[in-house]
């Protein structure tokens, strides 16, 4: 009984149903379940934690507002993540893009010296990759995130961002080159990370 005891939600379905009934305890549990993972997603899409928290807050308000529309509670994980990613994209369109200046980044792009740098990037640990990702221009970071981590195809990204697919490919390519450039600037050798 939930009147005097602490009601526990054994399954994700119970949790979602509790949230749909606007039970404060269920909402708290739901938030606790996803907050760390989803803020991690938000951090990947932004340059600062403050921006990430803005996206995170907006996304969770959307989640709790529209959770009634979730017909399959077992798919809540992917549903919540999709909302967070879409909120990050909206944030980019609404806030980040008007302030973006790509020209300054074009100058520092250098072609990769060899394909080994791709493997080199793959050898980074989590924190180092995150710091490199944060240094990318916003448009490139968005595409790199969607393509490399979220697993969207170029076509899907083009639909999400409302830009041509060729632009997506171009941005990803340039973003990847920038990552390699940053690696070269740091002078980090692969064996230091793998070895």
């Amino acid at each position: 009984m939930a009147l005097f005891g602490r009601k526990s939600y054994q399954t994700l379905t119970e949790l979602v149903v509790g949230c749909q009934q606007q039970q404060p305890r269920a909402q708290r549990a739901f938030y606790e379940r996803y907050q760390a993972r989803m803020l991690g997603v938000c951090v990947r899409y932004t340059r600062t934690v403050a921006e990430a928290e803005d996206i995170f807050q907006e996304a969770f308000l959307k989640v709790f507002t529209h959770i009634d529309e979730l017909t399959k509670p077992e798919s809540a994980d992917s549903w919540v993540k999709a909302i967070v990613v879409r909120t990050a994209i909206n944030y980019y369109h609404r806030t980040t893009r008007p302030q973006e200046h790509l020209t300054s980044y074009e100058a520092i792009c250098e072609p990769p010296t060899s394909d080994d740098h791709l493997q080199l990037l793959a050898g980074y640990d989590q924190e180092a990759l995150l710091s490199l990702l944060a240094r990318l221009p916003d448009a490139y970071r968005l595409v790199v995130n969607l393509y490399l981590i979220e697993g969207y195809t170029h076509a899907e990204i083009a639909k999400l961002l409302l830009i041509p697919e060729a632009t997506v490919r171009s941005r990803f390519s340039r973003g990847r080159q920038l990552l390699i450039t940053y690696t070269n600037q740091h002078g980090i050798q692969r064996h230091e990370f793998l070895g």
Binding site: Y147, G151, R176
Partner: peptide, 28 residues
């Protein structure tokens, strides 16, 4: 880029950042 993608996805599969407690309070 498939190999690179897999590595990145593995790296960030369990990437978590704890939210500030006040953030949860504001949302709820």
């Amino acid at each position: 880029d498939e190999q690179l993608r897999q590595r990145w996805q593995q790296t960030f599969a369990n990437f978590k950042v704890q939210a500030h407690p006040s953030l949860g309070g504001r949302i709820l």
